[in-house]
């Protein structure tokens, strides 16, 4: 009987571990191997050593993609800032407040494809935004929102931010509701006004949520694809203006069938996400230590 008890936990784990083993753990090992090979998917991989990495170093598109992915990380502080304010706004007892929270949540669940296509329709040269700006007289000529390279990345980042508002707002709202009322009362007695109160009580009280959102949203920013794909029609924008790390990975792997090169990009991406997550957690946790 003792022996049987030893086996049981592993039996429970087997189905899930098999799936995760095949679709997560094996791929990590495989990608490491592929990154050192020339692999066109159709023919077997040929070992080429560091060639893919050497090519990447001299690849201007790769450096562009890397830069774009780092620029994209700006959505993280913007989202943290906006969503804490949003959470403070919706954290009050008003009739119908739940309906408003639900309305803010709609972009989150609608899916980036449907949302991206809606935005694309609005931003069309002959679309709603230009119509509004023209009729208000703010512009004389319609602006080519989606064809102008300088706008590609900012528009995609705006879209990502807009889609994330409701999600991160809910996370901060849950955090706010865990903060004791006494702390706010104490802050008022100490002479804090409404906004100082939030700066001195809400923001420190939300530290776990800020860490969580920083990690999750920066991972999402580094892994952005759908927004770019929809807004640029799968082309990456004029002069690669919208090419991010994952978009370039997709192009190399699934458009040009350079699985080896794509794997090398994936390795760089993995190292960046790893470094970033560790840095995020370290940074935000060290903050708590110095304060307490």
């Amino acid at each position: 009987m003792g022996k049987k008890f030893m086996f049981t936990p592993y039996l429970f784990l087997t189905p899930a571990l098999l799936v995760i083993g095949v679709f997560v753990l094996y791929p990590i090992v495989a990608v490491i191997y592929y990154s050192f090979t020339d692999y066109s998917i159709v023919t077997p991989p040929i070992w080429t050593g560091l060639k893919n990495y050497q090519q990447l170093i001299h690849d201007t598109v790769f450096w562009q993609a890397l830069a774009h992915s780092f620029i994209y990380l700006l959505v993280t502080p913007v989202l943290i800032f906006l969503c804490i304010i949003l959470a403070i706004i919706v954290n009050r007892k008003l009739p119908g407040i739940n309906a408003f929270r639900a309305l803010y949540y709609i972009p989150v669940i609608s899916g980036s494809i449907a949302v991206g296509i809606s935005w694309k329709l609005m931003l069309d040269t002959n679309g709603l935004l230009n119509g509004l700006l023209l009729s208000l007289g703010w512009i004389k000529e319609p602006i080519q929102w989606l064809a102008e390279p300088a706008y590609t990345l900012p528009i995609a980042m705006l879209l990502t931010t807009w889609m994330g508002l409701g999600y991160y707002m809910m996370i901060f709202l849950a955090g706010l509701q865990n903060i004791s009322e006494d702390l706010y009362d104490a802050a008022v007695i100490d002479g804090c006004n409404a906004w100082q109160k939030h700066w001195h009580v809400s923001v420190p009280g939300l530290r776990p949520q800020i860490t969580f959102v920083a990690v999750i949203s920066s991972l999402a920013a580094l892994e952005v694809f759908n927004e770019i794909y929809i807004l640029t029609g799968g082309l990456g924008g004029i002069l690669n203006s919208g090419v991010t790390m994952v978009f370039y990975l997709w192009q190399q792997a699934f458009k040009y069938h350079h699985a080896g090169m794509a794997s090398a990009i994936a390795m760089v991406l993995l190292i960046i996400t790893l470094a970033f997550s560790i840095a995020n957690i370290r940074l935000l946790e060290s903050g708590t230590e110095t304060e307490s």
Binding site: P27, A30, L249
Partner: peptide, 8 residues
């Protein structure tokens, strides 16, 4: 990144 696992 899930996209990494999609290659294999």
């Amino acid at each position: 990144p899930p996209q990494l696992t999609y290659i294999p």
